[in-house]
Design a protein around this nucleic acid. Structure first.
Lengths: 168, 168
DNA sequence: GGAAATCTACTCGGATACCGCGTGTCCGAGTTATGGTGG
DNA sequence: CCACCATAACTCGGACACGCGGTATCCGAGTAGATTTCC
């Protein structure tokens, strides 16, 4: 399986569609977003609960409620989103092989417990590089990049789909 | 769960202990390695099959057989090992959300199929950064770094453990 | 003493079992506009 | 006209079911050095 859960993908696409044509945030409900993207509604609800808990979006309860971006889309990095959904995930979990070496017969030396495993250090560094790469992109930059590759009618279609759904 | 399987960890530690004091490769059997590290023997066997298939080690069949490094430990990067064990793993698998947008009623436009998803591009870039970070370390450099943090008696202990096991 | 047969310690690959976790679904509770109803 | 009430459309959180893949184990087949046996 892949490292990032499907929730991360859902979250990024969701936040991207919450940016309107002028680059500002727009309020949307989970149901709207789910139907627009063909995502499972209940599952997306949990995704947004996590986004809210991480402070990326804020919720408006009650009828006509929904979510809106809590920060400018230029200040929400992809790293933020990934960490909000998949928190405390590590590329590698060290099983402390050194402490199980047969040369220590049931007496593990202190250095094997205190000093960090070299393998783990290398992996942690790689993970840091990965997250730094993700931190270089924001919801806004991603949205702008997408709009370049798409016909001009596309964002209009979405806006119309939204207004039509809200009226009917 | 973590991205890299436990097999990657086993493989790295195994290859590290196949480097002798002078930095050259030394032949060892899977059973020796498994017992030395307290790793599951059968499972480690499969790990080495993959390492051999990737050309990182070469096998010597028959009695007194085993594995030896197929290249200099300075020319085996951690990236090589990770790819040998966990091949074709991706940080992120794109579910092509764009193609499920409700604004396309059952008629998916060509651009949504041809142009790559922006989200995927960002993730792929992050994955590349991660692997490049891993490629900067080799089995030899990792071994050397480990030896610095360890009492001088440690590598001697391992060598003695080996010779004693082979004689008795 | 030398050749042949047997034994042993390996590498391989397939089949399988276990189990945690990602993914998705269902349900109930709390909140707030909206619309209807009665005085 | 206004107060009140029911309803609908939301957000939230817990519980649970399903299935896949990581981890591990078992077993049989093939290979080759070591050992024994036998002439």
């Amino acid at each position: 399986m892949s490292f990032f859960s499907s929730g991360v993908e859902y979250a990024i696409h969701s936040l991207m569609c919450m940016v309107d044509d002028s680059g500002n945030g727009r309020e949307m409900s989970v149901r709207e977003i789910a139907e627009l993207h063909g995502m499972p509604y209940d599952y997306l609800g949990k995704v947004f609960t996590r986004l809210a808990k991480a402070g990326l979006v804020s919720s408006l309860e009650g009828r006509n409620g929904g979510y809106q971006l809590a920060r400018s889309p230029a200040e929400i990095t992809i790293r933020d989103v990934a960490l909000a959904i998949d928190e405390n995930k590590t590329l590698f979990d060290c099983r402390e092989v050194r402490q199980r070496m047969a040369v220590f017969d049931s007496v593990i030396p202190v250095w094997a417990c205190d000093t960090p495993c070299s393998v783990r250090l290398v992996m942690d560094e790689a993970q840091r590089q990965m997250y730094e790469s993700l931190a270089r992109h924001t919801i806004l930059s991603l949205t702008r990049r997408m709009l370049k590759k798409v016909p001009d009618s596309y964002p209009i279609q979405i806006s119309e789909w939204l207004t039509q759904r809200r009226s009917g």
